[in-house]
């Protein structure tokens, strides 16, 4: 049983189809990267996985005890109001809302928030107003918020957009760390090279179809070969000097 199973998924807006016939699964412990050109429907798919928009047809099923309250989400930056008058702490704390149903934040929720601010290096911004931050700083705040909500699965929509190279590296390290701790990762990214380095599985969306499979298989598929100049990083390939064993 998988965390998420999508079968023959067709999604779109007001009758306009963005993609169809998409089938794939997210298993416990996976690190799935979703790549594809602008407008291919990556963010739409993320919203589908989160239940924010419903599919036109097909199904998205949760399994293995996955529930909304275990999922953290980092939306694509363009979906956020960057001029919002809220303090950084208020924003990060709102990530803990899926944990408890009572009206006020508990000590525990506050310490989770502080902890995650520490992790993404924004402890010093706690009292700052969200609207006064730079794009990259805002991205980190939203990442901290997503981490607060995560206990089984984290969904990241273009997390490194707006981050400087060091911060991007930190982010990849942080996400890999989480993955090692047992958190399942679904990440949308345009950085295919880093994606194949870190991910266990790749979903490639494009206007004329999609690819879903392990990173190794992706590297040797017609999709992967078109975009990649690096060698397949998986152990099998490195040991057999590029030998293909699918």
């Amino acid at each position: 049983m998988s965390y998420i199973i999508c079968k023959k998924l067709k999604m779109g807006y007001e009758g306009k189809v963005v993609f169809e016939n998409l089938s794939f699964a997210v298993n416990k412990g996976d690190y799935l990267c979703i790549v594809g050109e602008n407008g291919s429907g990556k963010s739409t798919l993320m919203k589908g996985l989160l239940g924010l928009i419903s599919p036109i047809s097909g199904s998205i099923e949760y399994g293995e005890g996955l529930e909304k309250k275990y999922i953290g989400y980092l939306p694509q930056q363009s979906d956020i109001q960057s001029d919002f008058p809220g303090s950084v702490f208020e924003v990060v704390l709102s990530g803990t809302l899926n944990r408890r149903k009572i009206p006020f934040y508990s000590k525990e929720q506050k310490s989770i928030a502080l902890n995650n601010m520490e992790k993404v290096g924004i402890s010093g911004l706690k009292k700052k107003s969200f609207q006064e931050l730079s794009g990259g700083q805002q991205q980190r705040v939203l990442l901290a918020r997503a981490l607060c909500a995560t206990s089984k699965l984290i969904i990241l929509d273009e997390p490194i957009s707006g981050l400087d190279p060091l911060a991007s590296q930190d982010l990849y390290d942080l996400v890999s760390e989480l993955n090692k701790e047992g958190i399942t990762v679904v990440m949308v990214s345009h950085d295919i090279t880093s994606a194949v380095y870190h991910a266990s599985h790749i979903l490639h969306l494009s206007s004329d179809g999609f690819f879903y499979g392990s990173t190794h298989r992706y590297m040797h598929s017609s999709y992967g070969e078109k975009f990649l100049i690096t060698d397949c990083p998986c152990d099998d390939c490195r040991h057999s000097k590029g030998g293909i064993r699918l």
Partner: peptide, 14 residues
């Protein structure tokens, strides 16, 4: 606060 700041995220949080 959550709904005003980011409706999608709040919906995803239940």
């Amino acid at each position: 606060f959550a709904v005003t700041f980011d409706e999608d995220f709040s919906k995803a949080s239940g």
